[in-house]
């Protein structure tokens, strides 16, 4: 005799067992689909954000351009005045340009700081920013020369300081005194223009870097902070941070160079030379040698 009810129960169990793998696979597929859609949404959001940042940056640049064009015209006017008159007042204009140059170095440093910060916080955002800057780079050089002539074309110099920062840094590292004392007035105007573009992110950069250093104790970061202070003209701080970097990694040549440079700035030339010699006793470095030679020759 058939026990149909028992058979029906068994059949239900069998069906559930049979469907299990399919249900499992479909759930997996559904989950992966959800994950993919969410991920793609995030990606698109990120892309949009980057695009938005780009636009924001462009707008900022556009605003800066306007301001810059005004300022550049003013600057060129003052420049021509100062050059044409050649009166004792030229000293004051020199002071101004020197100030501008100092500003420039600060700006460069700031822009670099802000770049670094962005890199550490969000690499994607940084990439987008750099990309944006790079797209402007090729146009910057030819237009910048005409900046003083036409206010419309004076737009371009704004990008130059940010794109040229690394090169300028290298230059400044090689010849410190030159960049401080001999400043081309036209260039100073350009650097002054770049102030508007970059000042927004500078205030917290060093604080952030110091905070990061306290967390990570990275000697490279310490020497970076030292360099930043050096660029800002805060030589005591630069000296302190170079010592910090050196204590973590004595072989790091930059910390020695910064120590020496900061000491020179603080008037301790002998200490600087002594330090460089100590370093060269243990390590061989072309940069340290050249710096030592330049210090000894003066």
């Amino acid at each position: 005799m058939l026990e149909i009810e028992k058979l029906e129960k068994e059949w239900r169990k069998y069906k559930i067992k049979q469907l299990k793998p399919y249900v499992f696979i479909s759930i997996l597929l559904a989950l992966s689909a959800i994950f993919l859609t969410l991920y793609s949404k995030d990606a698109t959001k990120l892309v949009q954000q980057i695009a938005f940042n780009d636009e924001g940056a462009k707008k900022e640049v556009a605003v800066d351009e306007k301001e810059m064009s005004k300022e550049s015209t003013e600057a060129t006017e003052s420049e021509t005045k100062s050059y044409s008159s050649q009166t004792p007042s030229s000293n004051t204009s020199e002071e101004k340009t020197a100030k501008i140059a100092e500003d420039k170095t600060e700006i460069d440093l700031d822009s670099r700081d802000s770049k670094k910060e962005e890199k550490e916080v969000d690499s994607l955002a940084l990439k987008a920013d750099t990309g944006f800057l790079e797209t402007f780079a090729p146009q910057s050089t030819p237009v910048s020369s005409k900046a003083s002539n036409s206010p419309k074309k004076a737009i371009q110099p704004v990008q130059r300081p940010t794109t040229d920062t690394s090169n300028r840094f290298a230059q400044e590292m090689k010849d410190e005194t030159k960049t401080e004392n001999t400043v081309d007035s036209e260039r100073a105007v350009k650097e002054h223009n770049s102030l508007v573009l970059t000042t927004t992110k500078t205030n917290n950069t060093l604080e952030y870097l110091i905070k990061r250093f306290n967390e990570k104790r990275d000697p490279k970061l310490a020497s970076y902070i030292s360099r930043s202070y050096y660029k800002k003209g805060k030589y005591k701080e630069a000296l302190k941070w170079s010592i910090e970097a050196n204590s973590l990694d004595p072989s790091n040549e930059e910390s020695w160079i910064l120590f020496a440079k900061a000491n020179v700035k603080l008037g301790n030339r002998e200490d600087a030379i002594q330090a460089l010699k100590v370093y060269l006793n243990q390590y061989s470095s072309r940069n340290v040698k050249s710096l030592l030679n330049s210090l000894e020759s003066k």
């Binding site: 129960k9 068994e10 059949w11 069998y14 069906k15």
Partner: peptide
């Protein structure tokens, strides 16, 4: 097919 499967269950070709 349900009844074929039930028959198979009864004959032990498949198990629940």
């Amino acid at each position: 097919n349900r009844y074929i499967e039930m028959s198979a269950l009864k004959l032990g070709y498949i198990n629940a």
